[in-house]
Design a protein around this nucleic acid. Sequence first.
DNA 1: TTGCTAATCCCCT
DNA 2: AGGGGATTAGCAA
Length: 820
Amino acid sequence: MSFGGFLDNSHAGDGGGGGGARIVADIPYNMRGGALSQPLSKSMFSSPGLSLALQTTMEGGGGGGGGGGIGDIGRMPESYEISGGGGGRRSRDEEHESRSGSDNMDGGASGDDPDADDGKPPRKKRYHRHTPQQIQELEALFKECPHPDEKQRLELSRRLCLETRQVKFWFQNRRTQMKTQLERHENSILRQENDKLRAENMSIREAMRNPMCSNCGGPAMIGDISLEEQHLRIENARLKDELDRVCALAGKFLGRPVSSMAPPMPNSSLELGVGGNNHFGGGGVLSSTASALPLGPPDFGVGISTASSVVPSSRASNNVMGIDHSLERSMYLELALAAMDELVKLAQTDEPLWLRIEGGREIMNPNEYSRAITPCIGLKPNEYVSEASRETGMVIINSLALVETLMDSNKWAEMFPCMIARTSTTDVISNGMGGTRNGALQLMHAELQVLSPLVPVREVNFLRFCKQHAEGVWAVVDVSIDTIRENSPSFSSCRRLPSGCVVQDMPNGYSKVTWVEHAEYDESAVHELYRPLVRAGMGFGAQRWVAALQRQCECLAILMSSAVSTRDHTAITSSGRKSMLKLAQRMTDNFCAGVCASTVYKWNKLCANNVDKDVRVMTRQSVDDPGEPPGIVLSAATSVWLPVSPQRLFDFLRDERLRSEWDILSNGGPMQEMAHIAKGQDHGNCVSLLRASAMNANQSSMLILQETCIDAAGSLVVYAPVDIPAMHVVMNGGDSAYVALLPSGFAIVPDGTGGRVGSETDNNSGGSGGGAGGSLLTVAFQILVNSLPTAKLTVESVETVNNLISCTVQKIKAALPSDN
DNA sequence: TTGCTAATCCCCT
DNA sequence: AGGGGATTAGCAA
């Protein structure tokens, strides 16, 4: 056999190793590299030829150890690489081809054996690598052009003394190498990502199983409620609900209350509601709530309402509340449950957690709080201060209606028009169970305001969770979620800790509302003048919520009752009254939006030298709103301290007979009240229509629409000049949306150092703090400076409004000498 | 074992 | 025919 030809298998054409390779290729893939599978080796050893081959291989020192017969076959050619000459190639080819053609291992191996045996000592391996120089050159070209054409390859091969095909292969391999590298790289990146996600997943699972407070490392408030447990609770609540309804139905048929065999004590039903979670250290927090609430068990324990604590342990179906199983949602639910617990605890515990201070208000004892409550949204940021307040009051609304109001962002905003600048429900996680709001959970956004340009609007994102704790006993809790939602914008300079209300129906149509408001906020954004007020919880606190709720509910009750008492001298139809109230409400809302620069409008803040430091001037364009004149609207607002009681200030400002003392619109004389619609028992709560006395006969008198309100937390006088014909339309029940108006007015709050606004109908105000404190008065005007929206604002108009404000303040000060 | 490299085989355009 | 994917074999770490 002329094996000499194998010397240059490097430039061997189609044959050479190819033959060997083919044989190998015919063998099952995984047999390479010594991993010769047992069955085969068995058969091989059965052939003497093969065993010989193995032996040879060892001798040859070919290494590779496991090569086995295959390896030998592959290596065969190398042995013959010694001498040059092309001729042999063919014969070799043929030989190999014949072998492979036989498709017979044994045959092939045995055929090879002699060859291997013949291998001469000076074996030059077929294996070789290009020299570093060659590689360098190849790399260089590759960098420039990974796809050289034939000419380039030819050139290169000549220069490097390589076969053109070698060059070709090299490039081919280099390209595949690049590709695999790239793939590998991508792979590793993906793997890393995967690992990261898995780790995150694990840690979250772990955290959920064994929650820790991320700030202090202590056990988290959330407690170890498993998902399953949550669902069981939800299911329990649902079943309880069902049971209640069935009992009620049965009661109807039997003509007497049917108890669902429960022990007649409230705690069972309460435990069903939120679970008697002893995890939270409080034990039956909720149950004690019920018994602690003023109404004794009989009121809501009337048989049908008290559900059994023994509930069939049916598996909770997973979407009882429509909660999908996403992690985020279950975190929301856990937070909501924890917040609910905290709210109830705060609502029902008195001293030492709450301290009653002068004026009857209650403030929180922070030390006691941190002792008794594990924070559920992390610790207070260092630069923040806290405010916490609690208030209880009787409100003429039933618990269901109040709950419905709170859970509907539109109704909520309408109920607290002076407190909520803007709100929306951003996500509904659950609508509640069994057609009720029990278990309802939603994400909300709100801008809360104190009516002063010196107190920035509070923007909060929070969860609102509603829970029925017993028949006629509901609670709605809010808690900030900025800590959960990593990607929530960090604008909030305020976080609300569990806050909200517990409401319990009373037999007389009223309900008892206990409100807790607890927040942490950045005090530096609040003007010094207002810091005592806000910190005392009188700005955003519970007192204000309850007071506003009482006032608004009273208003609604009066409007709904047939016996609407009006003092109006002109007979206004009931639809006219409705229209007027609607218009007044729009006016007041608009006034608030101007005072607080809430995002309801796109205000441009104005920095002008000719304006007092504490006067905020803003402008906006009014276009296409039939409710106000088109053009540039300028809003100017400021707040000042006055040494008079809020009540006295309010009475002064709302008195039409004293109007000339401060209002330039009064033409220097008293005004007359043309119409009056009472909104509450307190005469301070009303909408009225005022007429400035005409200076002379041919001057058409001007009408002013005015709304005044007062409650335990503060008072408001808002007014706007209105067009007489338009007002006629409204008073006849026409649509008020087309009455253009720009409101001005006053907001009055106690200065926060002790006094309290006394409203005679306020059943909490008992001995209203006395006139110890002064008042904070906000004065705000909105005027049209130019009816062309595109017009520029002139220095004069800014100066004018600035003067208007300071003159008004001066006049008021002059008219009201200090109380003391 | 794993990775790299030179070379082959085979399919597709 | 040539490119490119799949595969193989030799070798080094």
